[in-house]
């Protein structure tokens, strides 16, 4: 194979000057982390609310929540991204829309990506929350209500604390997914980790080094997430209950 390995490429100044290629990669890495974490926090909050609503007795509320989940779960992520980035600004009230379009391109790309990933993931989180609540013995809800708790107190003190513990393992895979899905955002020009990798290939013609570095960076993120979630799982384990001691 006539390939010239050159790991030193990362330390070279970029063709456009001012930074090394390693600096580009680090910038992309930071963008991926910031994007994924912010979207994840929104997805958790929204997903918890929507997941709970799917289980409430009120038919209107649970219907709205079901529609939400089906919409955001069944449209391909890439299409959703294009809708948020290209279509949504046109649908905003004119002032807001033009303010958005005149803002820094990075801000436009970042915001669209964040909202897109957050809503897409929130639908999946909502499904986990719903299945967690539904997997609890039905008597738990009755026990809460029979103590004099209102329905929302029953969710707050009885159902959710157990449901959330039960869904830590499936949530781990959603958390991993959001980092991997964030690579899709390179299609609207956001210079996150995958996009920086491709850009580095364009500038240096060193695809192996570039994508090996990108792969390792994603791997690093996922290993950290996995260990973090495992630690969390052990920490919230209930004594004498599934998997507890």
């Amino acid at each position: 194979m006539g390939y010239n390995w050159n790991w030193g490429v990362f330390l070279q100044p970029t063709a456009s000057g001012g930074d090394t290629y390693l600096g580009w990669m680090i910038h992309g890495f930071k963008t991926t982390i910031a994007l994924s974490l912010s979207a994840w926090l929104i997805a958790l909050a929204l997903g918890a609310v929507v997941g709970v609503l799917r289980t409430v007795p009120n038919k209107v509320l649970s219907g709205i929540a079901t529609a939400y989940v089906e919409v955001f779960r069944n449209i391909p992520l890439l299409v959703q991204l294009f809708l948020w980035y290209f279509v949504m600004p046109e649908l905003l009230p004119e002032k807001l829309g033009s303010a958005f379009k005149q803002s820094n391109p990075f801000v436009q790309q970042f915001l669209s990506s964040m909202v897109c990933l957050a809503l897409f993931t929130s639908a999946r989180v909502a499904e986990q929350v719903r299945s967690g609540i539904n997997s609890l013995p039905p008597g738990q809800k009755n026990a809460g209500l029979a103590m004099g708790f209102t329905l929302s107190q029953t969710y707050r003190h009885v159902l959710l604390p157990m449901a959330v513990r039960l869904i830590v393992p499936p949530l781990t895979s959603e958390f991993l997914n959001i980092f991997k899905n964030s690579a899709v955002c390179s299609t609207i020009g956001l210079l996150e980790l995958a996009a920086q990798g491709r850009q580095l290939v364009d500038y240096t013609a060193q695809p192996y080094e570039s994508f090996i570095a990108v792969t390792l960076a994603y791997l690093l993120i996922n290993v950290v997430v996995m260990f973090g979630m495992r630690w969390l799982e052990a920490r919230v384990r209930v004594p004498g209950y599934i998997g507890g001691k």
Partner: peptide, 20 residues
Amino acid sequence: LSKLRSMVGMVFQNFELFPH
């Protein structure tokens, strides 16, 4: 109803203690 239930104690077949 919540107030009424708080005055009526109930014990279930499967105990239904809060496991956490």
